[in-house]
Structure formats: C-alpha cells, structure tokens
C-alpha cells in the first residue's frame, strides 16, 4: 500500500521522459499490455481449472469438449507468459498463438453451432465464447493489435 509522505506523492506519478525505450525489452506487459496480462491470466486459470476438473470428474460425458478446453488453457497460458517475459521472440510467439486462438474460437464457435451433438458440454470457445461474455473472441483480436503495435515502438 502506498502510504508514503503526502508531500512527495506527486513525484512518483510524473513520467520520466528522458528514459530511452530501448532500455526495456519491448514492454509487452506494460501499459495496455498489463490489462491483457490480467485478462489472459484470468482465462488461463478459468480454462485450466475447468478442464482439469472436467477431465478428472466427468471425462466420458464430453471428451472432445474437455480436451479442447485443455488445449485453449495451454494457449492462454503460453500467451500470458510471453506477454510477461517480453522481447521480440516472445512477441512473435505470442502473435502466432493469438492467431491460433482466434482461429480456434472461430472454428469451435462455428462447429458448436453447426453440430451441437458433438459437444454435449460447453467449452470456453463454444458459441464464440458466449458463456464468457464473448471475451474469448475479442481477446485475440485485441492481442493481435497490441502485439502488432509493439513491433513498431
């Protein structure tokens, strides 16, 4: 908790303009990236805990849905770690994963609508992520835009 002396409280809010951008690697997890880290972290936990529980407790009900949830959890986890680590390699890897994630949401979303019988239970990506406020479909798009922008800086 920031319980510093009241007089000096404005000092740490001021930005340091002289700081060169090259000193920190890409800053993928800073600024707007910090929000992405949180959201990807939340979805990693959500997808992972959901798939672990379902794979352990009720695997036979809908194995395809549960395995897909596990795959999405791995993708989310990888992007979260890449964003936190930063650097050009991580940026490229995260970019590929975000594209894969978007492809996954679109594929699974269409698949669940076209052939609901293949999915007796929901996945994170069912119906384009409707059960998760459609965040699963906005997240990769935002991620791709952010990662593209980070290259130009």
């Amino acid at each position: 908790m920031p319980e510093s002396a009241p007089e000096s409280s404005t000092a740490d809010e001021a930005e340091q303009p002289g700081r060169p951008d090259k000193a920190r690697p890409a800053g993928l997890g800073q600024g707007p990236g910090r929000l992405l880290v949180l959201l990807y972290g939340v979805f990693t936990v959500a997808a992972a805990s959901r798939s672990i529980y379902q794979l352990v407790a009720q695997y036979h009900e809908a194995p395809l849905a549960y395995i897909l949830s596990a795959v999405s959890a791995v993708v989310y986890a990888f992007i979260t770690v890449s964003l936190v680590r930063g650097g050009e390699g991580a940026r490229k890897a995260a970019f590929v994963c975000c594209a894969a994630e978007l492809l996954g949401v679109l594929t699974i979303g269409t698949w669940t609508l076209a052939d609901p019988s293949a999915f007796p239970d929901q996945t994170v990506w069912s119906d384009y992520g409707m059960g998760y406020l459609f965040i699963p479909i906005f997240l990769p798009v935002t991620g791709l835009i952010w990662l593209r922008k980070a290259r130009q800086d």
């Binding site: 920031p2 800073q30 910090r34 949180l38 959201l39």
Partner: peptide, 18 residues
C-alpha cells in the same frame, strides 16, 4: 499489485477489469 507496478491509467483499467 499489478496496478502498483503500472502507474498509468492502464493500472486503473486492470483493477476495473478484475
């Protein structure tokens, strides 16, 4: 804790999202 490390508007956005 994330907003402690991010002293910009995006720190506030992170808390709002959480």
């Amino acid at each position: 804790f994330m907003s402690l490390a991010e002293r910009t508007r995006w720190g506030s956005a992170t808390v709002a999202a959480a």
